[in-house]
Design a protein around this nucleic acid. Sequence first.
DNA 1: GCGACACTTCGGCGGCCGCCGAACTGTCCC
DNA 2: GGGACAGTTCGGCGGCCGCCGAAGTGTCGC
Lengths: 237, 237
Amino acid sequence: MSHDQDVPLARIAALLADPTRATVCTALLDGRAWTAGELARHTGVSASTASEHLSRLIDATLLVEERQGRHRYVRLSGPEVAGLIEDLTVFAQAAWPSPVEPPRSLRESTRRSAEARARTCYDHLAGQLGVAVRDASVALGLVLDEPGLVVTEQGWAWLAELGAERPARARSRPAVRSCVDWTERRRHLGGVFGATVHRTAFERQWVERIGSGRALRLTPAGADGFHELLGLDLAAA
Amino acid sequence: MSHDQDVPLARIAALLADPTRATVCTALLDGRAWTAGELARHTGVSASTASEHLSRLIDATLLVEERQGRHRYVRLSGPEVAGLIEDLTVFAQAAWPSPVEPPRSLRESTRRSAEARARTCYDHLAGQLGVAVRDASVALGLVLDEPGLVVTEQGWAWLAELGAERPARARSRPAVRSCVDWTERRRHLGGVFGATVHRTAFERQWVERIGSGRALRLTPAGADGFHELLGLDLAAA
DNA sequence: GCGACACTTCGGCGGCCGCCGAACTGTCCC
DNA sequence: GGGACAGTTCGGCGGCCGCCGAAGTGTCGC
């Protein structure tokens, strides 16, 4: 009766339904731009296969590319896409709870605990650091602990000092995001608020990426900075 | 290398990637419970095929079933699922703008204009009526036109009069939803606020379903009721 | 009870699509 | 210019999965 093209939902879901493409999208949730070769290695397929997958994801505007010399960098096209991927993953993890597989190596074990402490979630902070930022923001009255996590007037002023624009009206995304979060079962600060804190922390080198993953290390400057900015008491790693 | 099971995103997306299952999910966005047979006819597949699809969607907790005699009723399991489906559909419609196909019959043409006036979007109102409710709520100070559409104290009191509970903390979903909306390019009131207005309108018979679709007819009582409640000037159809 | 009906289970067919390797294009570096 | 390297295009193979019809289970009404 009906072709795929007729059902928009099926068409977009089919792109995410392939394990290789899904692994690509999940990897890109770290917010960075990866090269086609990196993604091919990461997913364990040949370069040609990866190339085709990327082209399809780009055609669907899920990804955007940036050519540099002989490299093709791709990243998620925006926060809406990150949100879709996170929401679907969160739902799937709830539907099929994973049997909490034990880490297969010391390397993986340390990576996991590092990610539990602090990690990137597209354009904002997650892990214990993310939760600490969220709680402090509520305690300081920058956001209200209401459905949707509302940014207060005081909060907007605070964001303005960090160089963030106040978005016009309700068009833009709300401040809260529920992340792919297997450690803390709490919602994080996303949206403009979360992105601004994340950007600030990177610009001022309060956090650094550990290796090539999503895990972050809090620098000594970061321990001081977060203390001054939000009153957090954190130990640099 | 990796099986589907390994990638939660792929697993959940695969369920939505089939045109038949996607059509089922889209149909259930009207918020009602359908029988397996109705869905089989609606999607144009045999009863056996439909039955298998429904079982898979139920296993994944996207749908819930309710057995009544020899009938199997299914509906979306909750607002999170409705949100997933809407968000994906909205994204797909933006990625592949449909060529605005002309209505194929008079029947379809009237259905479309009825849906443009007022329709159900899972558990809240959409169409011109939904937009009118949203604008009036902002004008009356029940919600703020901020990112996320914030419900004010006055708004919570207003909702309490309609018998709605104020949800605890930020755990629950925000008040705003961006719907599958090809007529009005504006966001609607979803969440607790939208659901309460929708429930009230049905309980007091301010709106009725037209036929078996998502379209709604505003009753004379509804024209009065919405005027008293929100100051809307609407003509009953 | 018996037929009509809603739905389910099963076996088997067919098409779609993700995979690869080989050959090709384009970029970088010496 | 030549060789190494990143990515692309193409043809063809193989597996997965959505489809159906036939047979089976359970429910309703007479």
